[in-house]
Design a protein around this nucleic acid. Structure first.
Length: 585
RNA sequence: GUCCCGGUAGCUCAGUUGGAUAGAGCAAGCGCCUCCUAAGCGCUAGGUCGCAGGUUCGACUCCUGCUCGGGACGCCA
């Protein structure tokens, strides 16, 4: 409809430029927006104001000339000039009700792009280190990433979803050492648990499983272990101590180290996968960091970086001169000891994604990765000559509130609320909706009591209830012997003239635009807001009018048709967020 | 110190590419179920859009400075 109006305006502008206002220049883009107030019509344009400068005239006079030159359209009822020079378009009722047919024809596809965009987008999300269960902060990134991927698919892009598994770094070694110490405790070998280790109960569980499958294979005496590895905090440095413990473990266990390491990795990865599946999230691929090292992808990436001329060797290490590309300092790629940094393997992963044909790489990261963005931009620029392929969405921190008390979180101390616990407490629907209903730029206060309350305080139920109510109405119709017939209803849409009905149809018409906008901005909260608006307008309509009218079968069919279209839009929107659309509540 | 995000109603937050009288929910107050689900609806009240300049026909929106809150600044991942 915007396109149609824009066309009318262009025709008129050409005439105006040829006639009364010769200096008027055609604007590149004609601003047309939906009005907020029904008294301003359905659409409004500000072209007259935007053209005031080039035409060197008062906006209202220009608007009058434009309106006089506007071609007639069967879809436009009337046109008015208002305020400082807005041109307001009032649609005919046929044009307004047409959206109901469009929704029913498109069905599940309503709100989705009509044609493929040809773009290939990779969305990488969560990618938490597999050294412990996911907590509620990861949950936000999970919900956000999954919804963004859904939105990009709706926008017509070909979308990949991946979890980058950090299975090659020090953190995983620390997990292995933590498991080993717990395992030793099972064999009455007491080694003080390292301050820098992972203390969660899940570590003991992995140790017990290891003990069951491998018996005493990894047992060594306490004296042999402690010998020469220095002191833990507070007497010594806790990081140095953990590293020394890991080194000692590798020496004593030999190939056994890999078994303990794998026991930790496999168990945590399986747990995370199960957790995310329970949250409605399924990846196309779990991409191993270690595999990049093994198959030479990291060397390949480093070669590409060196060829770009953006690297330098200094102090025995290889650096990316990222400060030349917007980063605040240069970054190490290969340490003086020859080991790749996490940054280097991550660059290799990003290059891999580009080489697989993805033109846009969306990364959903926790807000604590903010400092990492500039260097990754620099890396992408060094590889491709531009950083535009990289899109980063940060998910700001989540604070949980239980009974008004803020619940603390610390992964190392093993004190955190897990995503699994959250799902158990509030359910998948409420959790997913709460996670994405706010802008991801905004820290989230997650109120557990609110998410579980079955009251009108709870926004997710408000929307689901609208859907269930419509299902209930249709059930009531069936029970009353009214056979819903969409053909009859669509033929009678002209009967829908109540302001409530006009408002509902207007929102249905806006829905695809809002989905498109949400995709363009990687912002699922826009869909959450659109859903709330539709639900609100429906509930208001429901209270103001009855749908089942025994004395007026034609109007009954028309209203049921509208309401079925509303149900379709609610279901489509909830589907984009990964929230269920219940038929009864 | 540098950089990023934020500051909008008592609280939690929307606010499209710069547009008309800045919106919603909760909380507060008053109403609405012999009627398709009251998990709902209607009405009332509530504002220096952090502060000060600038850009322009027009600024919550863009620019500059300041201020307050959160975060990031490692040869960790």
């Amino acid at each position: 409809m915007q396109d149609h109006i824009a066309e009318l305006l262009r025709t008129a502008l050409t005439q105006v430029a040829a006639g009364p206002f010769p200096s008027l220049e055609q604007p590149d883009r004609i601003g047309i927006e939906r009005t907020r107030d029904a008294s301003h019509g359905d659409f409004a344009s500000n072209v007259a104001m935007a053209s005031a400068k080039s035409a060197r005239a008062n906006p209202r006079q220009i608007a009058e000339a434009i309106v006089a030159a506007l071609p007639n359209s069967p879809q436009v009822e009337k046109v008015e000039i208002a305020g400082p020079g807005f041109i307001n378009f009032f649609l005919t009722s046929d044009a307004a009700t047409a959206v109901v047919g469009q929704v029913l024809d498109a069905g599940e596809a309503y709100g989705r792009a009509a044609a493929p965009s040809g773009r290939k987008v990779m969305v990488e999300y969560v990618s938490a280190n597999p050294n412990g269960p996911l907590h509620v902060g990861h949950g936000r990134g999970a919900a956000l990433g999954d919804c963004v991927a859904n939105l990009l698919e709706a926008a017509g892009h070909s979308v990949g979803r991946e979890y980058y598994v950090n299975d090659a770094g020090r953190q995983m070694d620390i997990l292995a050492a933590s498991i080993w110490v717990r395992y030793l405790e099972l064999h009455q070998v007491t080694v003080a648990f390292p301050t820098g280790g992972y203390q969660g109960e899940y570590v003991r569980e992995i140790a017990r499983n290891l003990e069951q499958s491998h018996g005493d294979r990894f047992v060594h005496s306490g004296a042999a272990i402690v010998n020469g590895i220095g002191h833990d905090a507070p007497a010594g440095d806790k990081d140095a101590f953990v590293d020394a413990l890991i080194a000692k473990m590798k020496t004593l266990l030999g190939e056994g180290f890999a078994i303990v390491h794998a026991a930790g990795l496999d168990s945590q990865l399986a747990d995370i996968r199960d957790d995310l599946e329970g949250f409605g999230i399924v990846y196309d691929r779990w991409f191993s960091e270690a595999s990049l090292v093994q198959d030479g992808a990291v060397e390949h990436a480093l070669d590409r970086l060196k060829a770009s001329g953006h690297t330098a060797e200094r102090d025995g290490a290889l650096w990316l001169k990222s400060s030349e590309m917007g980063d605040e300092k240069d970054r190490v790629l290969v340490r003086a000891n020859g080991a790749y940094t996490y940054f280097a393997t991550d660059i290799a992963y990003h290059l891999n994604k580009l080489e697989r044909g993805f033109d846009t790489l969306v990364n959903v990261w926790g807000a604590d990765h903010h400092g990492y963005i500039a260097r990754m931009r620099a890396a992408i620029e060094a590889l491709t000559g531009s950083d535009e392929a990289l899109v980063v969405r940060l998910s700001q921190f989540v604070s949980l509130f239980r009974a008004g008390e803020k619940v603390g979180m610390s992964t190392r101390a093993g004190e955190f609320v897990t995503l699994r616990e959250l799902r158990g407490e509030v359910g998948v629907d409420a959790a997913r909706f709460f996670y994405v209903m706010r802008s991801s730029d905004q820290p989230l206060d997650f109120d557990l009591a609110l998410a579980t309350s079955q009251s009108n305080d709870n926004p997710v139920y408000y929307i689901q209830y609208a859907h269930a109510r419509i299902c209930s109405v249709l059930q009531q119709a069936t029970d009353a012997g009214i056979h819903f017939d969409a053909m009859t209803g669509r033929g009678a849409l002209a009967r829908l003239t109540e302001p409530h009905e006009t408002a509902v149809m207007g929102l249905l018409a806006t829905f695809p635009e809002r989905v498109e906008q949400a995709a363009a901005q990687y912002s699922p909260n826009i869909v959450a807001n659109a859903l709330r608006d539709v639900a609100e307008q429906f509930h208001s309509y429901y209270n103001a009018h009855r749908f089942l009218l025994p004395d007026d079968p034609e109007l009954t069919q028309a209203r049921l048709t509208l309401v079925v279209a509303v149900r379709q839009v609610l279901a489509n929107g909830l589907g984009l967020l990964g929230v269920s659309a219940p038929e009864s509540m």
